[in-house]
Amino acid sequence: MSGLDQFVQALVSGASIGSVYALVALGLVLLYRTTRILNFAHGDLGVAGTFVAYTLLTQLRLPFGLAFPLALVAAAAIGMLVYLLLVRPAKNQTELGLLILTLGLALALGGLDALVFGTDNKLVPTVVADRILRFGGVSLSLVSIVTSLLGVVLMLALWALLSFTKLGVAMRAVAQREDVAEAMGLPVRTVLMATWAAAAVLAAAAALLFAPTTLLNPNMMLDPLSKGFVAAVIGGMNSLPGAVVGAYILGILELLVGLYVSLEFKASFAFLVVVLVLVLRPHGLLGRADVKRV
């Protein structure tokens, strides 16, 4: 393979993994800017949705086109339940308290998955049979192309939801000023529940798209989740476009570092980037600083 081909290959593969990071980061940012919760259970919510899909696909033998939406619906239901049963009634409503709550939830969900489905690796059927396509010196797997495209479709769907629907406008209003939104007669509780549902759907979609590249097990989302956090922080925790930009930058840079610098330090490189970005721009590339009134 020539140098240029390698470079293009890294770009394409980076963009493919970047779409998974972007879906994770979008879910995290969507929830954070509305509820101020740094959701560490995000990955496990996604894995729970993927286990639903896995059961539907292998036990009930449903086609992918049916199992995928059903799993997303199940994830939305789980997200709503988490909000109604855990987050809303929790007495500790501080930012740190809720963070710890989601850490506990992550442990509990992971433990539950391991108990019900076991910790062994499971092969998840893919949308299309995998083939390797070659363009010149660059080879692409069909699954990763379909994955990236599905990811982009979902991102566009989220954008449409937030821009063109009443619910989306309500979500943005609650994110901006919860108390004013409530005073204006918005059903804040319903909106927050919908936000949790949407975040859980994004998590499940990311996990479902990521599952074919690795194998399904309860800890599968640990790495994409931490990368999703990094992407969200690089982009700015309160900016949705920032999350997408951060995710693609991270996905591509990671592969370029693996190619040109060192394969071993590919993974730790992400955190070097985050420290550098934060030192220069403490609120991320596209994020805005919270204005504190005294």
Partner: peptide, 16 residues
Amino acid sequence: QLTFGAVVIAVMMLEP
């Protein structure tokens, strides 16, 4: 792991 998580959730929900 499940019990561990559940205990943590319980403490956070009941006693800030």
